[in-house]
Amino acid sequence: MQIKLWGTRGSIPTPSKGQTIYGGNTPCVAVRTSDRRQLILDGGMGLHWLGKDLLQAGFSSGTGRAYILLTHTHWDHIQGIPFCYPMLISGNRFFIYGCGGPSTSMVDLLKQQMATTYCPVPNFFEDLIGATVQVENIDPGQFAIGETRILARQVNHVPGAVCLGYRLENGTSSLAYLPDVEYLEEEHRQQALELAQGVDLLIHNAHFTTEEYKNHRGQGYATDADALDIATRAGVGRLLLFHHHPERDDDAIERMAAAYADGDIPVEAARQGAQYTLGT
């Protein structure tokens, strides 16, 4: 699997001078599988730039196909979708998977984002406009996209949002993606441990430091220490600290990761533009 991070920032895009190394785009991770499928984890602001990149790869002529796995529908995970230009091009096909809100289907939420009150871009979720976009509500469990086996589990985030974490297995390589999660009790760690068990790469929320967390319990986020705990117990190959707090600048992010430099597991802060090759 070829992985590229297009957005690593949590909550809101932060185009700020001191944040250009780790980046200000909200979550979006591209995964290219061994059977040459384009998978995309989350549709934050990074999706606009991934979309521009895809225009070089068949999506400009309307022959592209991509699969987007959404963890949940908070803005920072979907706000790039209206600005993903390949979705405006007829002939392209997009499959969006996720579990919607507690009382609203995924497709209705995504259509609301495109309502004319908020958005001047043509609503490509409607038939006959732009690409063919198919939205599928999934339940936690297993499914496959081509040769990639996917496990989705519901993780604890905040009330009102149903939030998933994903594990992707493709050939001999594996990835776990847990961008938003909070462990209010030990039981909440079980789904994360299952998803992360033995993966080559774990992308995990590290919104707060342990010190900050004391005043922000219940806001739906984890700490760098939580991420390391899951990584250690699940025996992962590498940990990426992800979903950086909007106010955290490059220096502070670097310090957060540097604290783990002498540990058994390689730990890096997720950097916009970084690429990883997993397996062969």
Binding site: P13, P15, T20, H48
Partner: peptide
Amino acid sequence: SFPVALSHCMRYGGN
């Protein structure tokens, strides 16, 4: 249109 978090847009700003 949308926020632009790119280093070569930071002098004028991306917000």
